[in-house]
Design a binder for these strands. Structure first.
Length: 550
RNA sequence: GCGCCCGUAGUGAAAAGGAUAUCACGACAGCCUCCGAAGCUGUAAGUCCAGGUUCGAUUCCUGGCGGGCGCACCA
């Protein structure tokens, strides 16, 4: 890609300059997009960094460096600008060539050439199968699934897993709750137990129970409910276009003895002690691991806490050969992260190899009014409901657009009534519009020919809007790299939105189909094709469709 | 009380310590005999407060103020 090769060439020359000047070579410096008033495609703040190291005037450094950059073949001009920037304008031919290079790029092109593929296991959603999937799960699902797609596109090896908490006292409680609804339905007075699951969805489930339920005990009710709910989670994820390589059940860990073995492993490492007849994980003394207190692994009554099987699960991740983990949590579980990292350290693994992404909660509104949600009271809004009302595309784009750190306000009224205001349509419209332009071009008989579309002819494309569009396309791999760095798809979503804006401006200014000027038409069609491919790729990585018509 | 996250135009957000802070919605004024007006062009409007580090701070540090979340032998 042009920016990669450019950066390499720039760094080489900057390093040579630095060596002569007797200063440390400029490592890790990145290219930047210049502000709108600057007529250039790439901007470097390097001279200000180097000037500081060298205690020289940054403007002087900028002029020296700019002079050395001029022989790089892709560069049209490199000029120093106060207080010490170098603004680089690229040759139109280089930009044109890049349009095809970006869209035809193989897997792995966003990764730095010298970087090795990372081997990552991403775990996300992992909701308890005790109720329908919550709207908030949609955010974690979107972040996780988009990151899996993006990291794979960059050339990393990534697997996606959903951890199913299908063991423990919950099964019985769920079963008792469902049994109460079942009895209620058949005219027998019954009460959902204290602390049980109150939601109406259990009434719906009760109506679907098989004949055999008559003779079931609470555990059988619980087992059936979990299987049924898990199936609904799978269906929801499917319809939300989220795929997992594996649904990992907690019960498997108990069945295989992995929980016991993990406890023994931790004991052998001297991490476990007994206090008040419970077993504790002694991690609070480990400064690096960062948890502030010791945690219980096995209760005084002999039952394991949630924590122990979860440690066992994380142990299997490493044992199965994944070098890095990504775990996505909602903000209501952020307090769990230090504990988990401490446990990973206790297993003898580097806690930094586990990347915890904590996304803030979604605040649901109906117009101005905040909707209070409680899972136990059953007043939550399900992912299914939101998905059907606002559409998968709108939900996913909206969830992907914000950094995980920000609180997200989701207005159901807006999503329902004015869904065409959603920015996702702005992006999809570009794709549909270009497809339409190609249909029109076919009618007029001015389509570009050739099995593989060539790069547009640089001699014909000189308008500022054309250059701006080509430059924007050139930044696509950089957007993916930002996603990798931040472990969030939001730089890509914002990029697609900006690309859409640049394209719409181009469209207004530059007539594409013109039978009187077929050569120019073909050059512009090729530029349109490049835009279409980048938009389709970008939306695809976010799990959003790119329709040919809207 | 302690910990984590967040305070950016009317609203919701973006911004490897860089230039005149970007985008969408909303408001106002224009643009379809012409490839899709779900679009474009223009205008008004913004970094919570006080210090500090820096040539340069929305970004980093300290202290306020405001909002969210969490502090279990729950999961």
């Amino acid at each position: 890609m042009i920016l990669d090769s450019l950066r390499k060439a720039l760094l080489e020359r900057a390093a040579a300059w630095a060596k002569e000047a007797g200063v440390e070579a400029p490592e890790g410096l990145a290219l930047a997009a210049p502000p709108p008033h600057v007529k250039a495609e790439v901007s470097l703040p390097w001279p200000m960094v180097l000037g500081k190291r060298l205690r020289k005037n940054p403007m002087g450094v900028a002029k020296d460096l700019a002079a050395r950059f001029k022989d790089i073949p892709e560069i049209e001009s490199a000029v120093a600008a106060p207080p010490g920037f170098i603004n680089i304008a690229l040759k139109t031919s280089a930009l044109c060539a890049n349009v095809k290079a970006v869209t035809l790029a193989p897997e792995g092109y966003g990764r730095d050439a010298e970087a090795k593929p990372r081997k990552i296991l991403a775990e996300f959603v992992s909701a308890n199968p005790t109720g329908p999937l919550h709207m908030a799960s949609g955010r974690g699902a979107t972040l996780g699934d988009a990151m899996v797609r993006i990291l794979r596109r960059i050339g990393h090896e990534v697997w996606a897993e959903y951890y199913v908490n299908d063991a423990g006292a919950r099964v019985t409680l769920l079963g008792e709750s469902l049994k109460a609804r079942y009895d209620e339905l058949h005219g027998r007075p019954a009460q959902v137990p204290e602390g049980g699951y109150q939601g109406d969805y259990l009434k719906d489930l009760a109506a679907r129970l098989p004949e055999a339920a008559k003779s079931w005990g609470a555990d059988e009710f619980g087992r059936w409910a979990m299987d049924t709910l898990l199936a609904s989670h799978k269906k929801d994820m499917d319809d939300f276009r989220v795929s997992f390589d594996r649904w990992f059940k907690e019960s498997e860990l108990h069945a295989s003895g992995a929980v016991e073995k993990t406890l023994q492993f931790l004991k052998d490492r001297g991490m476990v002690y007994e206090k008040e007849s419970a077993l504790w994980l002694g991690t609070s003394s480990d400064e690096k691991a960062g948890d502030d207190k010791d945690r219980v692994l096995v209760r005084s009554d002999g039952r394991p806490t949630y924590f122990l099987p979860d440690i066992a699960y994380h142990k299997t991740k490493y044992d199965r050969g994944y070098a890095e983990l990504i775990d996505i949590f909602g903000a209501d579980h952020h307090g769990y992260v230090p504990r988990l990292k401490a446990a990973i350290a206790a297993l003898g693994r580097d806690p930094d190899s586990c990347h915890a992404i904590v996304h803030q909660l979604i605040h649901l509104y109906r117009g101005q009014e905040a909707v209070k949600m409680s899972k136990r009271a059953g007043t939550f809004v399900s992912l299914r409901e939101v998905m059907e009302e606002a559409g998968t595309d709108a939900c996913r784009f909206f969830f992907a657009l914000r950094t995980p750190d920000s609180h997200l306000n989701f207005d159901l009224e807006l999503a329902k009534k004015q869904s065409s205001d959603n920015p996702v349509y702005y992006c999809q419209y570009v794709h549909a519009r270009i497809c339409s332009i190609f249909r029109e071009a076919a009618k007029q008989g001015i389509l570009p020919t050739g099995a593989a579309l060539p790069a547009p002819d640089a001699r014909l494309l000189a308008a500022p809007e054309e250059r701006a569009l080509m430059a924007k396309i050139a930044w696509f791999p950089a957007a993916l790299k930002s996603c990798e760095k931040e472990l969030s798809p939001h730089p890509l979503a914002n990029y697609v939105l900006e690309l859409a804006g640049v394209y719409h401006s181009f469209y207004e200014k530059c007539r594409v189909n013109d039978a009187a000027n077929p050569d120019l038409s073909r050059a512009r069609l090729l530029l349109c094709a490049g835009t279409r491919d980048v938009v389709a790729q970008g939306l695809g990585l976010l799990g959003v469709s790119a329709p040919q018509e809207m």
